[in-house]
């Protein structure tokens, strides 16, 4: 979205950040408050809606049975697709949102699954049903409904929440056929008979946006319009760095980079516990409704 800031507003914003205080009263490394809703798409295996400030995203997880790839017979496949709805900004009309959608999808995939699929978030071998023949493929779809900055971090939280909400039906193999034959199987239609996901290893992404000489966490759209570059760092609960993506045009000093990573690690501790608490709260709200 084109942010129309006057010279005075720009100055106010950047000077504020230089002095450690932002326009909405937050400190440099403070996240905005966010809310999580679970199971909002009934036809998906799992779904979540996360709202952080005016940023609003929905993610859904759909599981489908398929054949594993020949090169990786004992692994399922995961696809991540993010779509930026034109409701979020008129610029996303037509093909306008495609670049950003692709950038976000790839950055998420890199942080959660790694390019060769050995990433920290999802244990792909747990998706196998019969080695070389049958596995679950997960399709993770994200939709950005409204955008006020920091999309990648919010999407990572939403993917984590949707996975925590995902149930995969139990599959019973009725005949362990010989190697060349198609296997017979039955999908359990008992709604209580499913296996869930352990999401404790799914990392959160923290984007540090460099504005002037300092960098901030959870930038709003106005702040993002003044950034020179940004680094998105995925950190899991063990404190391991799981993926790094640099975004934005300007170059970055290598010495600042290490600083940024340690800040991200620090911020991730409180963020992870808030995310877990929000997911727990959303789960218990869902239980009450049933």
């Amino acid at each position: 979205m084109v942010v129309g800031l006057s010279a005075a507003e720009r100055r106010y914003l950047t000077d504020g950040i230089a002095q450690g205080l932002r326009n909405d009263g937050r400190g440099l490394y403070d996240f905005r408050a966010f809310s999580v809703e679970l199971a909002i798409i009934p036809q998906a295996n799992g779904s979540a809606r996360v709202r952080l400030g005016a940023t609003d995203v929905i993610t859904s997880v759909k599981a489908e049975l398929g054949r594993p790839q020949a090169s990786r017979p004992s692994q399922g496949r995961v696809e991540i697709n993010i779509e930026c709805s034109s409701t979020a900004a008129p610029q996303f009309e037509g093909r306008g949102g495609e670049d950003l959608s692709l950038e976000l999808s790839r950055a998420l995939y890199r942080s959660l699954l790694c390019n060769n699929g050995t990433g920290p978030a999802i244990d792909l071998s747990a998706l196998t049903v019969i080695e070389g023949k049958l596995c679950w493929n997960l399709f993770i779809d994200g939709l950005v409904l409204s955008s006020d900055g920091n999309l990648l971090d919010v999407l990572a939280i939403a993917v984590k929440a949707a996975l925590s909400n995902t149930g995969i039906p139990k599959v019973e193999v009725t005949s362990a056929a010989a190697a060349e034959q198609e296997a017979d199987f039955e999908i359990s239609d008992n709604p209580d008979d499913f296996s869930g996901f352990d999401v404790s290893h799914v990392p959160v992404i923290i984007t540090l946006t460099k504005v002037g000489r300092t960098y901030i966490v959870d930038a709003t759209e106005e702040e993002e319009s003044q950034m020179s570059s940004a680094i998105s760092i995925a950190v899991n609960s063990a404190g391991h760095v799981c993926g790094i993506t640099k975004r934005g045009g300007a170059g970055l000093d290598p010495s600042v980079l290490l600083d940024m990573i340690s800040v991200a690690k620090e911020v991730s501790k409180s963020l992870l516990s808030t995310v877990d608490a929000e997911i727990m709260a959303a789960e218990s709200r869902g239980d009450d409704q049933m």
Binding site: I58, S60, N81, S85, S86, F139, D141, L143
Partner: peptide, 13 residues
Amino acid sequence: CEYSMANFSTGDR
């Protein structure tokens, strides 16, 4: 006007 459908909006993805 632009009309679009989310990937997860229908039963089969």
